[in-house]
């Protein structure tokens, strides 16, 4: 089922939370809204869910209008037939696992085959035998699975994920990420996923929409976003970026070479500042003469204060397009530290 968003926008108490935005979620695709907190991604998700009313624009689900400011159409949340996994799971503490999962079916009066559908959903998330437990008797990962099972039990047209992994610890987060992604793929669900974690976004999505300050900066496959960021903010937010020309040209760490491979390569002299060993390689922070700090990878340990020569081939350089330089400069110091690896 296809979801189409046209010119949706919203502001809170005069402050714009989302500028007019268009978005298309294709049937069976996994789309991620990625951006720092306050970028409007959750607002957009909640407006699609029907939990927040847009100031204007239109939303279509499978060709049917579910919201339109001009037509004064607003299908309430409970009639949109979506599923949602909440950030804090929002499991109902007074219901058992079974009742939580069965809720959507009961609310929609789908009483036939209720037990089978619930059992099937629970089996998918490997929670057989836990039907009679209450949420507080489950571990964090199990709660997450219940929340997922609840969202998909009604076979929704669209599953919405609101930073569902942020409440879990790092190990569990990785495990759940893999599990959830394969479930979504196996079931062929259309999914919209909100996160500020680029690893989640990169590993799960068919399409990533990078947002900042209520505005979509770039959209595309994970690969294209990483390899060809069109905006300095995108370049910095996703992966590590070494700037050749501030706000204009950038190279990824793995593209920086320790030896010249072609005559076209640009060369840069630098001083080693920090060396960290991360297992499969060394991550080296360097001060490049006349530029900012870079991060590069190496298979050998380098010595702090050592002078080195670095090479970058012109094809590996990403050039920004029509960058709004002034705002990018402002934005950069405010970036949250990213969870990389």
């Amino acid at each position: 089922m296809e979801i189409e968003i046209k010119g949706i926008h919203k502001s809170f108490a005069g402050t714009p939370a989302l500028l007019p935005t268009d978005l298309k979620l294709r049937q069976g695709e996994f789309t991620t809204l990625l951006g720092p907190s306050g970028c409007g991604k959750t607002t957009l998700l909640r407006m699609i869910a029907g939990l927040e009313q847009p100031d204007g624009g239109e939303i279509y689900s499978a060709g049917k209008c579910i919201y339109s400011a001009s037509k004064r159409t607003d299908v309430p949340a409970h009639k949109r037939q979506f599923g949602m996994v909440f950030q804090d799971f929002a499991l109902w503490p007074h219901m058992t696992v079974f009742e939580n999962v069965a809720f959507g079916l009961k609310a929609a009066k789908q009483h036939s085959g209720l037990k089978e559908k619930v059992t099937e959903a629970l089996a998918m998330v490997r929670l057989q035998g836990m039907e009679d437990r209450y949420p507080h008797q489950l571990s964090g990962g199990q709660q997450q699975r219940v929340a997922f099972a609840r969202a998909v039990a009604i076979r929704p047209a669209l599953v919405l994920f609101d930073e569902p992994l942020s409440a879990l610890d790092a190990v569990l987060r990785e495990e759940m990420r893999v599990e959830m992604m394969s479930l979504v793929k196996d079931m062929g669900l259309t999914a919209l996923y909100v996160t500020h974690d680029q690893i989640e976004a990169m590993s799960m999505s068919d399409e990533i929409v990078v947002m900042r300050k209520g505005e979509v900066l770039q959209r595309g496959t994970p690969e294209s976003i990483y390899k060809a960021p069109s905006h300095p903010f995108v370049a910095s937010f996703i992966g590590k970026s070494n700037w050749l020309e501030p706000e204009r040209a950038m190279v990824r760490p793995e593209q920086v070479k320790w030896s010249r491979t072609s005559d076209d390569d640009r060369s840069y002299a630098a001083t080693v500042r920090h060396v960290s060993y991360v297992g499969e390689r060394y991550e080296i922070r360097l001060q490049v003469d006349g530029l900012d700090e870079w991060t590069v990878y190496s298979s050998k340990r380098a010595t702090v204060q050592e002078r080195v020569e670095l090479y970058v081939s012109p094809e590996s350089i990403c050039w920004m397009q029509g960058a709004d330089i002034s705002s990018a400069v402002q934005q950069q110091p405010n970036l949250e530290p990213l969870a990389l690896g």
């Binding site: 869910a49 029907g50 949602m84 109902w92 959507g104 609310a107 009604i154 919405l160």
Partner: peptide, 25 residues
């Protein structure tokens, strides 16, 4: 608000939400 919103997204009308979610809690 989340528990009630979860009810809304999963298909419960406001009366049903009040009866099944808010009231017991």
């Amino acid at each position: 608000g989340n528990l009630e919103e979860a009810g809304a997204v999963h298909g419960a009308s406001s009366g049903y939400r009040f009866r099944r979610i808010m009231l017991p809690l």
